[in-house]
């Protein structure tokens, strides 16, 4: 009996529990999906690194029993890009919030996707800057109330799958924190995919976003996802805007192939330098 340990024991730092997230916060469930995906993807955990930025979602890096780094705000993707380019045999995963990745880090996001840097970006979207008190984010639907939009948001929010695809991502999916099995499957696919892979996870933030908008607790939000989400695989990403309390369309929208940054670099330099050029990347790594 005593020998029975939690199935995530190998991946999560159970000695750090309970974690900092509020009751009913969806980040923990997204982390469970990630941990299950790591187990399913059959990748070497010693060669997997997790990078987060700042925010409630940014705390994920501190709870995984893997090499991980908690970067400065917005800089998870550039850090991950450096990690991948310096050590191409690593599987590099970025898990962070919508504010961190798409607001302050938005520029890095579009360029990593454009270059098709082989990193996996899992964005936990709770429609606000939660850690700092629930401010408006570039994902806040119109006209949701946040601390900095007391009369309702009037800016048009980003549609993240569309932003990812149009910037160049080769894998794009969206799920809610309720759809754990499907989310796990997408994360597993993304982990095995070569190139910039993006999964958006819609998650409840009961303490700030839900409370300001009087939407109840975390469980109410899961019930809302249950009643108001539809799966439409392969849908044109232009149609994936999220309206306030409107239907949430989920699924896998993009799964294609194009040369990664390192492949393109090798191709170009081979064209220019011919045999004199030594290929860069894991295929050329000595030993392992």
């Amino acid at each position: 009996m005593n020998a029975v340990t939690h199935p995530m024991e190998d991946i999560l730092r159970m000695d750090r529990m309970p974690h900092i997230w509020c009751p009913g916060c969806g980040i923990g469930t997204a982390v469970t999906a990630f941990a299950m995906a790591l187990q399913k993807a059959e990748i070497c955990l010693d060669k997997t690194a997790v990078v987060s930025g700042i925010g409630c979602s940014g705390r994920v890096a501190g709870y995984v029993k893997l090499d991980s780094f908690h970067t400065t705000h917005g800089r998870a993707i550039p850090f991950a890009t450096g990690l991948k380019l310096a050590n191409p045999e690593l599987t590099v995963v970025v898990i962070s919030g919508d504010g961190d990745l798409i607001a302050i880090g938005g520029n890095h996001f579009i360029h990593a996707a454009r270059r098709n840097v082989d990193i996996k970006v899992f964005c936990i979207n709770n429609f606000n800057y939660a850690m700092t008190g629930g401010q408006l984010a570039p994902t806040t639907p119109e006209p949701a109330t946040t601390t900095t939009s007391p009369y309702g948001a009037f800016e048009h929010p980003f549609n993240l799958p569309f932003l990812a695809e149009s910037s160049g991502a080769v894998y794009v999916a969206r799920w809610t924190a309720l759809h754990i099995r499907r989310l796990t499957k997408s994360m597993t696919e993304a982990l095995s995919k070569k190139g910039f892979s993006f999964v958006e996870i819609i998650a409840p933030c009961p303490t700030l976003y839900s409370r300001r908008n009087r939407l109840g607790d975390g469980l109410d939000e899961l019930k809302y996802y249950h009643d108001n989400s539809v799966i439409k695989h392969g849908l044109d990403t232009r149609e994936l805007d999220i309206g306030y309390r409107k239907e949430i369309v989920m699924g896998k929208f993009v799964d294609k192939d194009r040369p990664t940054f390192i492949e393109a670099l090798n191709d170009r330099f081979t064209q220019v330098f011919g045999d004199k050029y030594e290929q860069y990347g894991p295929q050329n790594a000595n030993g392992n």
């Binding site: 939690h6 199935p7 997230w21 923990g28 469930t29 469970t32 924190a177 975390g218």
Partner: peptide, 13 residues
Amino acid sequence: CEVICPEFAIFVT
């Protein structure tokens, strides 16, 4: 229950 728990507080064997 195990997969939906955001606290890693319940699991089943």
